[in-house]
Nucleic acid binder design. Sequence first.
DNA 1: AACCATAAGTTACTTTATGTAACTAACTTT
DNA 2: AAAGTTAGTTACATAAAGTAACTTATGGTT
Lengths: 101, 101
Amino acid sequence: MKESLLCPRLSKAMELIGKRWTALIVYQLIDGAKRFNEIESSLPISGRLLSERLKELEKEGIVERTVFSEVPVRVEYNLTDKGFALKDVVGGIETWSKEWL
Amino acid sequence: MKESLLCPRLSKAMELIGKRWTALIVYQLIDGAKRFNEIESSLPISGRLLSERLKELEKEGIVERTVFSEVPVRVEYNLTDKGFALKDVVGGIETWSKEWL
DNA sequence: AACCATAAGTTACTTTATGTAACTAACTTT
DNA sequence: AAAGTTAGTTACATAAAGTAACTTATGGTT
């Protein structure tokens, strides 16, 4: 990998957003918390990858995971402030898609 | 691949933006045309992938390619209106990165 | 004429990411 | 005790990305 003169924060943001499914997962959570299966059903993503992405997003502080010890167990995911701050970005993609695709 | 209830235009936009390097290439062209080597130097991307991405973006009507028959040949890439319309999206990612990363 | 330089790629090959489908853990209802 | 539910995980196949050397076209230099 070459070194770059690119701002490392921009670079990291681009790596996050420019990773398959990430923006769509954030988009799914904009209107409020969802559980694992709800996200899985609303996107053509597999459980394997959804699980992987949610872990990454949790580690980045973009998504928060809450376990409810019911039977069967319920797990909810919602956006942190950091994640919710991406609303304009994903909204912008949506707007662009409506106008240009 | 599962079927989705997702808007196909949003889905396609997310596939474009959520593809490695795409948003960064658009970002590099926001301020005006650049040639192949300029983009290559300003991003940690290889010639192989840059060439591939530029072809995709040209096919999508986001980027325009102009050949100048000088010696050695000069090739410039610039955004179409459709591509320039992504300014707010990539700008939004930049803003978010400055505030949250 | 043979040789070097440059821009813009392309090719061959390796490594990493993604897709698919079957499986597991924990607990409840039948 | 067998089956159902949610939230995953595992093992394996395929596709995408990374790396480095090579190509093509043209003109200038020795």
